[in-house]
Design a protein around this nucleic acid. Structure first.
Lengths: 146, 146
DNA sequence: TTCTCTGCAAACGCTTTGCACGGAT
DNA sequence: ATCCGTGCAAAGCGTTTGCAGAGAA
């Protein structure tokens, strides 16, 4: 419950009233590494909060992103994914299984010279390809594709 | 017109029949640095090809991306942007004016160790913040926000 | 003739908006 | 009594799909 307390404080600092729903959404987001979509968050939380609505989840997630408390992951074009981690890191999405992996961003702090004078607030590194599991699956199958 | 020729060749190599529409879409994509959306491409090309339809533009852009001839830029969640450049580079989007800037990716060839064994086919670097122009605009205004 | 590119219109999926209810202060 | 978080339903927006017509080989 003390985590809840710190969550409340962080919301308060961001001028977001820490209602029960908002606290739960924020907690869930920080606890998971699955880069959930708004729908994912809703489906998980509605189990324990049956009256929860999608609108509230959307509202809350947008509030969190606007306040800088959550990250927007746009590695897929048709939907928003959210990330409660504020640490700088990247995402890899496998084009076969669709899974999104986290990785720590390489520690090359230097930003490109073209962006001198730009205020950089957010850095996202997106890699796409085929994950190890899917490659092994391919290898096992060999040329069995007829 | 010789560029058209090379465009045709590249399409042919990718097993895409170089129809007139497809050639024009691909040419346009390679000529611009504006990271157009499908709608942008449509609105530009429909001026010279009045019978062009959005469906064809979408189809063609998806073909190009699947063939690796174009890049999908998902820096915004609600729409797809396309990029005809195959060179490794990054994008910066200003949260005030919405403009997307290109920059050459920093030459940090080393990929994160967590992704060892992963087949990395595509690397995208997305920065968000406030561009120089918008910062200057803010500075000029000072506290004039009423 | 056959193949497939094209285009219209409708369907689709996710997000946002409008509005009214209800709890908290 | 006022404020504002909440939830339902509908609208919105860009993308995809189904199907029929036209053009190329």
């Amino acid at each position: 419950m003390r985590q809840t307390q710190s969550v409340r404080d962080r919301l308060l600092k961001a001028n977001i009233k820490p209602s029960y729903h908002r606290v739960r959404v924020f907690e869930y987001l920080m606890a998971t590494t699955a880069h959930p979509t708004a729908e994912d968050v809703f489906e998980e939380l509605v189990k324990e909060i049956p009256t929860l609505s999608r609108t509230t989840v959307h509202n809350t997630l947008n509030l969190l992103v606007d306040a800088g408390l959550a990250h927007l992951v746009t590695i897929e074009a048709h939907q928003k994914r959210f990330d409660g981690t504020t640490a700088r890191h990247g995402h890899f999405q496998c084009r076969q299984c669709g899974k999104v992996y986290d990785f720590l961003a390489p520690a090359n702090g230097n930003d490109p010279p073209e962006l001198e004078g730009f205020l950089i607030e957010d850095r996202e590194l997106y890699f796409r390809g085929v994950c190890r599991d899917c490659q092994e699956r391919e290898t096992k199958k060999g040329g069995t594709d007829s």
